[in-house]
């Protein structure tokens, strides 16, 4: 599904990615973990050419993105969804319009657009909030809108750049549940970049550990499942006391 072939990327003097090759298979939930500055976000951003590699090839859905014209690249990007740590919604557009804009970009006729927007918002459980603006939503709801927006054009791949890093543990579990559902019921290949071990362990099948712009190791794991975190204050107390043992 995604093939990187000897890609490297430098920012002025700093070499962020040093000749990395990797393959991500269809249907996987693939994790990329590492410390800050290890190059994991850059690696993810190479997969839709948000960062253009200095060397090497990027192949997604059987298309060599690095060889496409800018017009075909834009089309290819419509089947590569992406979500971000800070959601990156358009604050002056309603929930509905935030999702609809990705369909507009794909030149979907207005009638079809409406049905698809509702469908996507239902999938993430926000169909009741379509008239709200992002400022009126919680962090978890904003990320759900971003997921709906990324899914609108029925992508083959969903790239997630620290999708839960600005969310609390409860909301993190909620969003991971949505992502797992995206993978299981829609068959979308997911790549998650995170520095949170819990997040990676809970839903990934295969994980690459990055260090200094290189792949340190890649391991297959059995997803541990999403930790059940309770909302109750007693749960917090239990966790605190347990930690003292």
């Amino acid at each position: 599904m995604i093939k990187l072939h000897k890609v490297s990327k430098s920012f002025s003097q700093f070499q962020a990615i040093k000749s990395i090759s990797l393959t991500i298979n269809k249907g996987e939930i693939y994790g990329i973990i590492g410390t800050s500055g290890a190059g994991k976000s850059t690696l993810l951003r190479l997969m839709n050419l948000l960062e253009v590699p200095n060397e090497g090839d990027v192949e997604v859905n059987g298309q060599q993105l690095t060889k496409l014209t800018s017009k075909s690249l834009r089309q290819a990007r419509q089947s590569i969804g992406m979500i971000f740590q800070h959601f990156n919604l358009v604050a002056n557009k309603t929930v509905y319009d935030n999702v609809a804009v990705s369909l507009e970009l794909a030149k979907i006729p207005k009638q079809e657009r409406k049905n698809r927007v509702i469908e996507c918002l239902q999938f993430v459980g926000l169909e009741k909030l379509l008239d709200k603006y992002p400022a009126e939503l919680s962090g978890g709801q904003k990320q759900r809108v971003a997921i709906a927006r990324a899914l609108a054009n029925r992508p083959e791949v969903l790239l997630c750049d620290e999708p839960t890093s600005s969310l609390d543990p409860n909301t993190t579990a909620e969003i991971l549940g949505v992502l797992e559902n995206v993978n299981k019921s829609l068959g979308v290949t997911i790549v998650i970049v995170s520095h949170e071990m819990e997040v990676i362990k809970s839903i990934c099948n295969r994980v690459t550990v990055m260090a200094d712009g290189e792949i340190h190791d890649t391991v297959c794991i059995e997803p541990a499942g999403i930790a059940n975190i309770s909302n109750s204050p007693n749960w917090f107390v239990e966790q605190l006391v347990k930690g003292g043992e």
Partner: peptide, 25 residues
């Protein structure tokens, strides 16, 4: 900056980035 990145990741052209994202925001 992230709003523009999201626009580009969705396949927006320069014109679309300007009119559907930049000016709106």
């Amino acid at each position: 900056k992230g709003v523009m990145e999201a626009a580009i990741s969705m396949g927006a052209s320069v014109k679309e980035v300007i009119f559907k994202f930049l000016y709106v925001e």
